[in-house]
């Protein structure tokens, strides 16, 4: 009996040692040198592998960062400046700071504003529908409403609003990775500078038709009247192909343009109710009022039914 135990122990340990030796030799033989900094940099990155930096994954981005001479054009939108600074410190380089951004849907053509002119019965994805024709409404620039952007968002920052039929960006979740920008066949998403308290002011329309047809197909379309361009004191509004565009880098959120728009296609979000004078952000009272409002909004956004 004891001999059986002995032989078992000897033979098994022998096998184990032999296998370990082989593994060790193989590991030595096929060892690939990898810069240890890649792991360090990757550790700092958010590991969401969203592709927002333009690379297939965080590791590829880390490799690119180490190879790069300087950080020009290399930015992780999810981690933001904080992450980039940390990595720069680690690698002894300087980060190029970029303003945080947020995705914005440049279409406000909810069902009530945009009458249907036909009925789509094909496969309900935006890319397939867009390859076939202009869409169910008269506006061929607007949102199709089949939610390809929601599918592609890795951060749960988008959902389809059942009433309007349009996707909604949940600002606090949005990392500006740009997946929705790439996915949307109508190019309706834009990454805009993120202002404090997630305030936004933008033209929610991409319709390049002339005023008449645009207005006919959607009551909140930009008709290219240039009233907003005239009123803007910062030259932030550009009119191109009958369509106004507010440059978020130049815009100072003065809110002069929005009331000028005859079709309400300029949208303001996150501002306190309009008063006679421009609201001073530093006064306590208005700030609380504002916070309440944004909290309410956030609560609303958080109570999204799962579907």
């Amino acid at each position: 009996m004891s001999s059986v135990v002995l032989y078992t122990i000897i033979s098994l340990s022998g096998l184990g040692i032999a296998a370990a030796l082989m593994l060790f030799l193989a590991a030595q033989k096929f060892k690939v040198y990898e810069d240890p900094r890649i792991d360090q940099v990757e550790h700092e990155l958010p590991a969401s592998n969203c592709g927002g930096c333009g690379f297939p994954g965080c590791r590829n981005f880390a490799e690119a960062l180490i190879k790069a001479e300087d950080f020009e054009g290399l930015h992780c939108p999810v981690g933001g400046n904080e992450t980039m600074n940390k990595i720069a410190e680690l690698l002894g380089k300087t980060a190029v700071t970029q303003d945080p951004k947020v995705a914005v849907l440049r279409c406000n053509g909810a069902c009530e504003f945009r009458p249907m002119v036909n009925k789509y019965d094909g496969t309900k994805t935006c890319s397939i529908a867009a390859a076939l024709y202009g869409g169910e409404t008269g506006c061929e620039y607007g949102c199709l409403g089949y939610g390809d952007c929601v599918e592609v968002c890795k951060f749960d920052a988008l959902y389809m609003d059942a009433d309007t039929g349009l996707p909604v960006v949940i600002d606090k979740n949005c990392t500006a990775c740009g997946a929705c920008v790439k996915e949307c066949p109508k190019n309706l998403f834009e990454l805009r500078k993120r202002y404090k308290k997630d305030r936004k002011i933008y033209v929610a329309c991409m319709n390049e038709d002339k005023g008449g047809p645009a207005k006919k197909s959607c009551s909140v379309a930009c008709i290219g009247c240039t009233k907003c361009v005239k009123v803007c004191t910062f030259d932030a509004i550009i009119m191109n192909n009958n369509l106004a565009f507010i440059d978020s880098e130049l815009c100072r959120l003065c809110r002069k343009c929005a009331p000028e728009c005859p079709t309400n296609s300029i949208i303001e979000i996150g501002f306190p109710p309009k008063k006679e004078k421009v609201v001073d952000d530093n006064t306590g009272q208005t700030t609380t009022a504002l916070e309440n409002q944004t909290n309410e909004e956030n609560n609303k956004l958080n109570n999204i039914p799962e579907n």
């Binding site: 496969t123 994805t125 390859a131």
Partner: peptide
């Protein structure tokens, strides 16, 4: 099944 719809989009 809408086979051709998806094949067309894959082709594109």
């Amino acid at each position: 099944r809408p086979l051709l719809d998806y094949i067309r989009s894959g082709k594109a």
